[in-house]
Design a binder for these strands. Sequence first.
RNA 1: GGAGGGUUGGCCGAGCGGACGAAGGCAGCGGUCUUGAAAACCGCCGGGCGCUUCGCGCGUCCCGUGGGUUCGAAUCCCACACCCUCCGCCA
Length: 419
Amino acid sequence: MIDPRLLRDDPDATAAALARRGVDRAALKELRDLEERRRQTIAELDRARAEQSDASKAIGRASAEERPALIEAAQQLKGRVADAERAREAAATAHEAAFARVPNLPHPDAPDGQEGDGEVLRTFGRRPAFDGEPRDHVELLEAGGALDLERAAKVSGSRFAYLKAEGALLEFALVRYAIDVAGRHGHVPVIPPVLVREEAMYGTGFLPTDEQQLFRTRDDDFYLIGTSEVPLAGMHLDEVLNPAELPLRYAGYSPCFRREAGAHGKDTRGILRVHQFEKVELFSFVHPDASDAEHERILAIEEEIFAGLEIHARIVDIPVGDLGASAARKYDIEAWLPGQQAYREVTSCSNTTDYQARRLRTRIRVDGGDNLLVHTLNGTALAVQRAMIALVEQHQRADGSVVVPPALVPYLGHEVLFG
RNA sequence: GGAGGGUUGGCCGAGCGGACGAAGGCAGCGGUCUUGAAAACCGCCGGGCGCUUCGCGCGUCCCGUGGGUUCGAAUCCCACACCCUCCGCCA
């Protein structure tokens, strides 16, 4: 959620910032009216309650003879408080619903434009050259006995996979490698709950906007997480942190579940886009002054992980029109996939500034002043399936075997896969 | 799944219809004393929202959460969540 006070105090700057994301001024005028209405109803309710409270306290002090008359008089006040309460409630509900749908203010440095208009900041790694036609990950992994899509379709349907044999071991190696790199940079490994309550989804901004992307349980009120960002962000829900504790840095490892509604026909081959995948996710809670630096820091960890795997990729500064609701700025790493002859997203890191923290109520204590909302950031350390695709496609050899990058050899125990 | 017990401020813990946002203790912070420290003593010591001459201030809400009863609820009633104990089941 954006800061309603900012909209009130500096409507022009707020409108200009949100206009970059396609929010029009009429919608903002409506928000300001809702904010004004909310404050009026609160003031009215406070007045009514103060009056009633005085009357009740007077009864407590009164003698037995005086009481009946005073009680009768005080009874009149009940209705006024009840009316004011209903008005306040209605105004708060309308305010809440409208503000929950407003996206975060974009970072001034985030580029303009829509999906595809991202600015390539840099590339790293060497783009592999092949003598013949390179195989794609499905061919490589299936031939190597590492992937079984057909049987997964039988058991669970499309967009599911069995990773087995060297495929399963490759997952463990990649995960442990990524967690070790993250750990060297101070991110504490976490295995979080993958079923969460609505409140956690709402607090992280996935509800109400991304409801159609989420799986939910039938008999219990749980959502399956689409990323461990959700339970990691929720860890400090409703907490006031000591500023000395910051930054708090985590690396969550979990399966991720996505319905991929609306993606019919898109990326149907292989394990690029599946309903269930595993991911190591970086998450930081930082002082508001430190979030820009933290964003660069997380991006650098991601780059270190992929460069360490000797994967050629490029870093893209995502345009404002393609940002998720909670992000102010986002960097993706797109790895080169020889099987597609295209760069595809393998990581994404976002600075969500105070947008999530406001709903999560995660603050830091400020002596002699108002407590501050923290800033939160998240980024992919390693999305197993997509990293696996890039790795096997880029490091494949003519015979269908795959050279394991040296950094991963200690984790895997082999120098070659499918050899 | 069955049967009980519980949830109060950073922690412990009193309160069981009327000056209660809440006694008392511990921890923390500031001060007196001291060469310094300890002890002792004094003071401060939750959060949200709104108002504000932004100055300390004022109002209101919060005693797990949400409803209800009442002139008035931490205290009474209902529902839910979570924690603990015992039985059953279980990786």
